[in-house]
């Protein structure tokens, strides 16, 4: 994997950058118009899926997480998200079940 990315270096990354940029602008428009549609409970889910896709595009291509020589950076990202989820999910364990009894 590492050799693969190393050999990729000479190639100009401009095409990637501009396509990602277009995709991000498109995603922004999409978020805006998806919010105008009545998707019932899925409005929030769609908004979050689009936002996460955009965030991934930025992280992978603009922040070069994709070509990173080391898995270490991915480990940092994954463990951070893991701990963020612990915060959100375990809090929700309380808020979600408070009215049960």
């Amino acid at each position: 994997m590492a050799e693969h990315t190393a050999s990729e270096h000479p190639k100009s990354p401009l095409t990637t950058y501009f396509s990602v940029w277009i995709a991000l602008l498109f995603g922004t428009g999409l978020t805006y118009y998806a919010a105008k549609l009545d998707l019932g409970v899925f409005n929030a889910a769609v908004a979050l899926i689009i936002a996460t896709t955009k965030a991934l595009l930025v992280a992978l291509f603009f922040m070069h997480l994709k070509g990173a020589h080391e898995k270490l950076l991915k480990l940092v990202v994954i463990s951070t998200i893991f701990f963020l989820f612990i915060l959100l999910v375990l809090s929700m364990v309380d808020y979600g079940t408070r009215t049960w009894s």
Binding site: L90, V93, D94
Partner: peptide, 22 residues
């Protein structure tokens, strides 16, 4: 250590189910 924090809140009014989990 990050999974246990609400054991400080057992008598504070959290859901009993959450208290069980924590």
């Amino acid at each position: 250590g990050f999974l246990v924090w609400a054991h400080h809140m057992f008598v504070a009014g959290i859901s009993i189910y959450a208290a069980l989990v924590f």
